[in-house]
């Protein structure tokens, strides 16, 4: 029995420490999944809160067929998509805010260039289509398997892998423009 399953059992019995531990273990990935969809910190936080509340209300009836994390994140995805639909809001990508990659007047410093390029790459991720964005961030930031990513984005394992590689390839093209 993995630690999540143990914690879920204890949380079901009303153990507040187990409930808090589950929150602490999964709130970061939950936030990043939600943010990957709504692309707004405040909306993502609201969606995550609603998802956690819904999950804990249904905890008694969680059968454990899936991993708790996958189950929780599927609720997060659903909440985030609902938030996005209700707000009809989409953030315009503002790459100008990232600024030029390198200030030409400034002496070249490899560290500065790398950090600026890294910020630019991260900003470009926001411009990817949702499935590619989710596949890239879940794979690189969270180390999720393509199988789990597929479950979260509603695709097969193979399609999740293709979405990931499409996303990376598109970033590569954008970075070289």
């Amino acid at each position: 029995m993995d630690s999540d399953a143990t914690l879920v059992d204890e949380a079901r019995r009303g153990d507040p420490a187990a409930q808090n531990r589950l929150v602490s273990l999964h709130h970061e990935i939950a936030f990043r999944v939600a943010r990957g969809i709504v692309q707004d910190d405040d909306l993502a936080a609201d969606a995550v809160q609603d998802a956690f509340m819904k999950a804990f209300r249904a905890l008694d009836r969680f059968r454990g067929d899936a991993r708790f994390r996958t189950w929780l994140l599927s609720i997060v995805v659903n909440e985030a998509r609902g938030t996005l639909r209700s707000r009809k809001r989409r953030r315009e990508s503002d790459l100008d805010a990232v600024g030029p990659v390198v200030d030409p007047a400034r002496p070249i410093d490899d560290g500065v260039v790398v950090r600026a390029e890294a910020r630019r790459a991260r900003a470009l991720v926001d411009d990817l289509p949702e499935k590619q964005r989710m596949a890239v961030t879940l794979r690189i930031d969270e180390g999720l398997s393509f199988r789990e990513i597929g479950a979260l984005i509603g695709s097969s394992e193979g399609a999740a892998r293709v979405n990931y590689h499409h996303g990376i390839r598109r970033l590569r093209e954008k970075m070289s423009e």
């Binding site: 009836r61 659903n78 998509r81 509603g154």
Partner: peptide, 12 residues
């Protein structure tokens, strides 16, 4: 959805 009996299909 909450119980995992129907995974959400938010991408349709």
């Amino acid at each position: 959805i909450a119980l995992g009996e129907r995974l959400p299909s938010p991408w349709l």
